[in-house]
């Protein structure tokens, strides 16, 4: 079959794979964002104990391969707990925890990039720490973090392909299944690659626009 014929024939399956890829990415990034924010805040805390908790989490995430994390969560933990595991849910948990670790580092870096004087000025007006963090530090931090955040979104989207090994029928796994039928490796992987490429390009375009919008009142030069 030619590539156009392949596309026509497998379009519904490929699209289903792509949709699942995007869904897993969005859901994982949502939870990762919460984890990243919470652990990022812990890592800039004045309390040593809280910083240590964040450090351990980030080190575990960074110190182990994503694939091993996925196997551990899909096969390892369910065995100990004696439960049946679902590949999609395991995949989402894995990616959430993984991206959460990296996002925590991004949040920490962003918060630390804001000069100490900002927090001091806010506190000197009588604002409590949380309020100062939320309204003064974080809005500035997030702005400097934007490129790194976008980068992490793209990485997580690509990382979903690793979930094919635990049987999640996202885009990559869909490609593998199709090839198992027709053995047209070259054509199918080319189609899959283009689909990833297009979705990531769309994502970066949207983010670029977002980034530009976020530059407040800047004399645009």
């Amino acid at each position: 079959m030619s590539i156009p014929e392949l596309i026509v024939q497998y379009w519904p399956r490929l699209m289903a794979g792509l949709v699942l890829t995007v869904e897993i990415t969005i859901i994982s990034l949502f939870f990762a964002g919460i984890l990243g924010l919470v652990f990022g805040l812990l890592s800039v805390s004045k309390k040593k104990g809280l910083r240590a908790i964040a450090l351990v989490y980030v080190d575990i995430v960074r110190g182990t391969p994503l694939l091993v994390q996925a196997f551990f969560i899909y096969f390892g933990i369910p065995q100990v707990l004696g439960i049946q595991s679902d590949p999609v849910i395991s995949g989402i948990i894995t990616l959430s925890l993984n991206a959460g670790g990296y996002l925590a580092e991004i949040f920490r870096g962003g918060i630390e990039s804001i000069s100490r004087g900002q927090m001091e000025a806010a506190r000197s007006l009588g604002l409590p720490y949380g309020m100062a963090m939320r309204s003064v530090i974080l809005p500035q931090a997030v702005k400097t973090m934007t490129p790194a955040l976008i980068n992490q979104c793209i990485i997580t989207l690509k990382d979903t392909s690793l979930l094919s090994v635990i049987g999640v029928t996202e885009l990559t796994q869909t490609g593998r299944l199709i090839i198992a039928n027709n053995f047209q490796s070259f054509e199918v992987w080319a189609i899959v690659a283009v689909m990833y490429f297009v979705i990531i390009m769309i994502l970066s375009k949207i983010s670029k626009r977002l980034e530009r919008k976020m530059s407040y009142g800047k004399s645009k030069n």
Binding site: S115, G117, Q118, E120, A121, A122, R123, S124, L125, G126, L127, P128, V136, P139, Q140, K143, Y216, G217
Partner: peptide
Amino acid sequence: INKYRQDIGMVFQQFNLFPHMT
């Protein structure tokens, strides 16, 4: 401490205005 600080104004060498606010 927050209540207390409300009554003490502080002006810094580096101004420390919030750049994301008018």
